[in-house]
């Protein structure tokens, strides 16, 4: 046990020295309904790269993702201690303003959830609530973001159509574009391809890879192959603790911990 935690912090520091971190987690503990869901999480998430959170279901990986965005607090009976620093600012500080910091992080959920409005308005929604009223400017943003996710050619003639008419793969790309339109620095993905067909999955994966130069990306996934394909770093969460954190090849091919080894065995064989 002791060996585990020391190797973990070693690794974290190792990563920390390489790049300056956008997201720094210190001594994070989360209890939900009295259960200790996340235990003493310390983490520096590398910038401009894709980091995947993997682990068996129920291990706390989605909870970890949601603490980054303060989305946990809608549920009662949650207690969170420790700190999450985004650009050095503690988002759990009492005076932190939630809407402002959430804007920095785009969320790509499990299933696409287009807002009940047109394609155009879906993307313009974020910029609008943040004060951009200029029609021309909005049109620019919509076009840029749709191009960004490779959807522009497919939908440019029907921007006024309801977003729910799009195929599910297109919807997920639309949701990504919507998230990008508020100019986040970080993209959080919660098993974002689990509802998609293989081709759409591939499109999203390629998009994420191409976006990492501009954004810090954190994904929760239960598909090891996907983690392998898209991520630079992997966090292995087990039972609410971070068992292993390191470069993708290291974690998948040369895991340090026995549990990690067993978990990734299926992937290797």
């Amino acid at each position: 046990m002791h060996a585990v935690s020391s190797s973990k912090t070693e690794k974290a520091q190792d990563v920390n020295t390489q790049v300056q971190s956008h997201i720094v987690i210190r001594d994070l503990n989360v209890h939900i309904e009295g259960k200790h869901i996340l235990k003493n999480i310390n983490l520096d998430i590398p910038n401009h790269s894709v980091t995947s959170i993997i682990g068996p279901s129920g291990c706390g990986k989605t909870t970890l993702l949601k603490t980054l965005n303060r989305l946990l607090e809608d549920v009662s009976d949650v207690s969170i201690s420790g700190s999450v620093l985004v650009n050095g600012e503690d988002i759990y500080a009492p005076d932190a303003e939630v809407t402002h910091l959430r804007k920095k992080m785009g969320l790509l959920s499990q299933k696409p959830f287009p807002l009940p409005m047109s394609i155009f308005d879906n993307i313009a929604y974020g910029p609008k609530i943040h004060g951009i009223k200029n029609k021309k400017k909005l049109q620019e943003i919509v076009e840029t973001q749709l191009r960004n996710v490779g959807l522009w050619e497919e939908v440019k003639d029907r921007l006024d159509a309801s977003a729910t008419r799009l195929s599910i793969g297109q919807q997920q790309r639309l949701c990504l574009a919507r998230g990008l339109a508020v100019e986040p620095e970080i993209i959080l993905g919660d098993e974002s391809t689990s509802a998609l067909d293989p081709i759409s999955t591939q499109t999203i994966e390629n998009l994420l890879i191409s976006l990492k130069d501009a954004y810090t990306i954190v994904l929760v996934t239960h598909i090891l192959r996907q983690a392998r394909r898209v991520s630079d770093y992997i966090i292995f969460v087990y039972n609410g603790e971070i068992l292993e954190f390191g470069k993708t090849e290291d974690v998948l091919l040369r895991p340090k911990h026995e549990i990690t080894r067993q978990y990734v065995k299926g992937f290797i064989s």
């Binding site: 303003e97 809407t99 402002h100 609530i129 943040h130 004060g131």
Partner: peptide, 8 residues
């Protein structure tokens, strides 16, 4: 802008 939104 932000303050107005929060006020609302």
């Amino acid at each position: 802008m932000n303050t107005i939104r929060l006020l609302k």
